[in-house]
Simulated scan of single mutants.
Amino acid sequence: MSGSLENIRIHGSVVGGLEKYLASLGYDLQALALEYGLTLGPPEEWSTRYISLVEYSQFLERVSSLLNDPYLSLNWTSVDPAGGMKQMALAARFAPSPLEALKIMSRFASIAIDLSVCDVVIEKDTVYYCWDYSPLVVKPEQLTDRFASIVAQRFLTGFAGASSSPLEASMRREQPKNSSLYRQMLGGPVKFGSDINKIIFSREQLTQSNPGYDGEMFEALIELCERRLADTRKQGDLAALVQDVVVHRIASADLSLELVARDLGMSGRVLQRRLAENGTTFQEIHDRMRRDLASELLRNTGAPISEIAYRVGFSATGNFTRAAKRWFGLPPKQWRQQEAVVPEFLRSTMKKS
């Protein structure tokens, strides 16, 4: 896996609960991780390190297929709703109100998982908790189910001192065959095929006082989260920042050094110079991000070649084919046939292109 994909991470504490859940079904997490290409490291380090979010999301999809359980993450959450990163969860539990708890979960989400979007939006009487992933996470269905059900269950069960049932949820995933479990786990009606993941709350419910509020404990935990967030940000560099901007704009055929520089608040000339000082260029980063996303889509989805070309920023399929030959040594269709790990049920839906 390339370094760019490894930079999209999730905290290793997430796998502790998954190990127990799989063991209850008679499966060994580490054996499955080895078989399906998820790099975990030793168990004693899971609570202190990060793992690849791309690998983890693919792993959940493959385990779901192995178990023949399309609702794997919802069933897992029904017996293990805790999730990882206990410091952030505790800070939210001792917050002055459920609304402040939700804001904490947005503010410090990047300690636990790399998201492209994580916001709390307040509109009159409604509060929206919104999130999404890097385009490099091409199979996020089980990941989304787990994330959404953890957030919803925390508020349904009085996570911040009083129950705050979501009004509705919208998920950027395909419609499942049976949505009843989604309604049960997310606490209200669920819509599918949304442009972004959202859990929607009543502002009145979220602004009620938290009877479990503890000012001293809350401040101490916020300070701890601030330190963790600062440590996480220190690990980044300019190339990583450029990579983040590029991958979020990857579908744009006219993406340029100047556009990225503007997003980062500097001139194109300054960005070019600073990247050169780091031993790279904008063109190298852009090309690597295109290659990485193309390889993920070819390997792990049944999307037509023409659609993949568009999603990685090529206005013509022929240009993408030439780039794929340069990257992989083969045309994209042949490389997919050689490398793909698409489940059999998706292979039948692949369109000729």
Rank of each mutant, 00 (worst) to 15 (best):
Y128H: 14
A33T: 02
Q142P: 06
S52L: 01
R49Q: 15
L99T: 04
L143D: 10
A160R: 01
R146S: 09
L67S: 12
P98R: 02
E100G: 09
L90M: 14
S65P: 01
L67W: 07
A162G: 14
P98G: 11
E100Q: 03
S134M: 07
E123C: 08
R146A: 09
L102V: 02
L25E: 15
L74S: 12
G158H: 06
F94N: 00
A91H: 01
I122P: 10
L25N: 15
V138E: 09
D119G: 00
A101I: 00
R107C: 03
E35M: 10
F147K: 05
W76Y: 15
G37H: 13
K103Y: 00
L115D: 12
R49S: 02
L102D: 00
P98W: 05
S134L: 02
M88T: 02
E61K: 01
K139I: 04
R93K: 15
S57C: 06
Q142G: 06
S65Y: 00
A23S: 15
A162D: 15
I111D: 03
A160N: 13
G16E: 08
D69N: 09
L143V: 07
K20R: 14
L53S: 02
L34V: 08
L32M: 07
S47D: 14
S163K: 05
A23R: 15
L53D: 12
V127N: 13
I111H: 01
A109D: 13
Y36I: 06
G84D: 04
T126Y: 12
A91M: 10
S97Y: 04
F159M: 11
M105Q: 11
E123F: 12
S97M: 02
F159G: 04
N75S: 11
G26H: 07
V151K: 11
E44K: 01
Y36T: 13
N75W: 11
L34Q: 13
L22I: 10
L115V: 09
A89C: 05
E55C: 12
S106F: 00
V117H: 15
S134G: 01
Y50M: 13
Y129F: 09
S64M: 05
L40T: 02
T144H: 04
K124F: 15
V117C: 15
V127L: 14
Q87E: 15
L29T: 01
W76K: 07
A82K: 10
M105N: 01
M85T: 00
K124V: 08
S97Q: 06
E61A: 00
Y36Q: 03
A31S: 14
S116M: 05
L115Q: 08
R93I: 01
V127Y: 13
E123R: 14
V120Q: 12
P42D: 13
S106Q: 07
Y50Q: 08
P140I: 10
L136G: 13
L66H: 10
S110G: 13
A112S: 00
T48Y: 14
K139S: 10
R49E: 13
L66R: 03
D145C: 12
L40R: 08
I51E: 05
E55A: 13
D132H: 07
A91D: 09
W46D: 12
